[in-house]
Design a protein around this nucleic acid. Structure first.
Length: 554
DNA sequence: CTCAGGCGTCG
DNA sequence: CGACGCCT
């Protein structure tokens, strides 16, 4: 986002820059600033909330396809003008109130307006790694002070410097430790936790971010947190576990997930979540609809606007032509529960056998594999991810070959009653998505089938099996060698945007017969899929003298 | 510096 | 066909 904004702003006639990200330790101040802003709206003639929020959140999500750079810049200018207008109207009484609450200027906390050419901003931004958060804080505090001085030269200096310093000086880990301790004191280790409720909270908080289209990152935090709890959750769902204790929860979710943790803490201590419980009926409905496959933020809002409040409302509304439900929605509604459910490994093994067996029987030249966490021996999966190759499909752009191959595959699997065309979500030449069910099983499972261009197969296996950190490491390694690694291959990146088969410079694509060769090419010890787990490969690579500095930060 | 890229749907 | 939304 920031790179994008910087690029966007570089030629802009308006001298303004966005100062973010903040060190994490300032999040608390940041969020209370937001709350304060809402409060202050009544007092402030200019819509502060909108001004500040639009700048931070709306620009990166504007559709680049449909807008010219000029219109984006115009919008940007407009926001800047609003902020300026607001700054000009901050009067001393407002300032009094803020300082009384030990707050620095909220909106200036969220972003700083500065003159182009002020030398410190770039260094401040580059120092924004967690360890150097203090550098940013100092730079920011200085700038804050400058801004405040500018607005109110007479009375602001001392009052504002202090609170902002305090706001930034507490280190992140201190806050986390403090919180953790406070929580441990209040909740007994063997207290029983309503995991289902916690999972639902995390899910809804994630969806809420998605609904309001704020940053992708914020939603990802909740997602990651809930991933950490999947193993526990799955055990409960499978009936292997009847209750979960607080100690187990603490074990599963590292304290680094500070935002999710604060929400969990609230739930465990007070039994509610204030952010979720205060939502309007419409927002609650929108969150529910978001869970349906193929309903995203824009349809969700539209459906709610048309009067939908529950899942059952949708079909009647569609019949009365108030909204339009497409195939995928109907399937998503019919299998709403199944789609959210995790799949036990035993069933994944059965899928593996059934899918392979069916394909091999139909054509011995078909090679296939189940990817994702299943391949890393995980004890559960969230969907069935199948990749297939056949020598009849070699070139990525040969749609004919891909389409006929895909048709054959789907026909075979439907013949075996693993798939059925009623539950087809998506069916293109290279990608199929739908629901699969093992004969005799009551649950449908989400399945994705991908066709790999013949020579990309090993790369796809590697790229789609993870784990994420390993992929990051390997890509960095490739990059250091001036190469580019992705799920299609390893080669020299081709920058000109025409006539490049797979995005690589012709002739530089390394053809490999298996994943091991890719590790060899990059000079890393080979890892079997089940070893591609950070806890396993990390120490081993360390011993082998691999440079892991890039991976150190999450 | 991190999905891009593939799909369906609608106009 | 292009634009858009949604998903992985």
């Amino acid at each position: 986002m920031h790179a994008y904004l910087r690029r966007l702003c570089a030629p802009s006639p308006v001298p303004i820059r966005l100062l973010s990200p903040f060190p994490r330790s300032s999040h608390r101040g940041y969020f209370s600033s937001v709350r304060l802003l809402e409060e202050m709206r009544a007092d402030a003639p200019v819509k502060i909330k909108i001004a500040y929020r639009r700048i931070i959140t709306s620009l990166p999500r504007l559709s680049l396809k449909s807008r010219t750079k000029a219109s984006l810049l115009a919008e940007w200018d407009l926001e800047v003008a609003r902020v300026r207008a607001w700054s000009a109207r901050v009067d001393s009484s407002l300032l009094e109130r803020w300082t009384a609450k030990k707050m620095c200027l909220p909106s200036v906390t969220a972003f700083a307006v500065e003159q182009e050419g002020a030398p410190k901003s770039t260094t401040a931004r580059q120092e924004s790694t967690p360890s150097k958060g203090a550098g940013v804080a100092t730079a920011l505090t200085t700038r804050l002070q400058g801004e405040v001085d500018h607005l109110h030269p007479s009375n602001s200096r001392q009052r504002l410097l202090q609170p902002s310093k305090r706001l930034f000086s507490t280190s992140h880990s201190n806050i986390i430790e403090g919180r953790k301790q406070a929580l441990t004191e209040r909740i007994a280790a063997d207290a029983v936790v309503d995991l289902q409720q916690v999972m639902a909270d995390l899910r809804d908080l994630e969806l809420l971010e998605k609904l309001h289209k704020t940053t992708v990152k914020a939603a990802a935090g909740f997602k990651d947190a809930s991933r950490c709890l999947y193993p526990l959750w799955h055990d409960v769902d499978q009936g292997k576990k009847s209750k979960v204790t607080f100690a187990e929860l603490q074990e599963a979710l590292p304290p680094i997930y500070s935002v999710p943790w604060t929400h969990i803490a609230e739930r465990l201590t007070s039994g509610t979540n204030s952010k979720l419980s205060t939502l309007s009926e419409k927002d609650k409905a929108a969150l529910l609809l978001l869970r349906v496959y193929n309903i995203g933020s824009s349809r969700s809002e539209a459906f709610v606007a048309a009067g939908a409040r529950t899942l059952e409302d949708l079909e009647p509304l569609a019949r009365r032509k108030k909204i339009s439900l497409v195939r995928a929605h109907k399937i998503g509604l019919r299998h709403f529960d199944d789609i959210e459910r995790l799949i036990p490994r035993s069933e994944m093994m059965a899928f593996d056998a059934a899918l392979r067996g069916a394909l091999r029987k139909a054509d011995p030249l078909l090679e296939c594999e189940l990817l994702g966490s299943f391949r890393r021996q995980a004890s559960f999966s969230s969907d069935v991810d199948l990749v297939v190759r056949h020598k009849s499909f070699v070139n990525k752009d040969d749609e004919e070959a891909a389409a006929s191959l895909m048709r054959r595959i789907v026909e075979v699997l439907e013949g075996e009653n693993l798939l059925d065309d009623e539950n087809r979500l998506m069916f293109g030449p290279k990608k199929y998505a739908g629901l699969a069910r093992l004969p005799g099983n009551k649950h449908y499972r989400r399945i994705d089938i991908r066709l790999a261009p013949y020579h990309s197969y090993p790369y796809l296996l590697l790229g789609c099996s993870g784990d994420a950190l390993l992929m990051k490491l390997l890509r960095h390694a490739a990059k250091k060698r001036g190469l580019c690694l992705n799920e299609y291959g390893l080669g020299e990146k081709y920058t000109a945007d025409d006539q490049n088969p797979n995005g690589f410079k012709p002739g530089t694509l390394r053809v490999v017969k298996d994943e091991r060769e890719i590790f060899d090419l990059l000079g890393f010890p080979y890892l079997t899929p089940k070893e591609r787990d950070y806890a396993v490969w990390r120490p081993r690579y360390e011993r082998a003298g691999v440079d892991l500095s890039h991976v150190h930060k999450l």
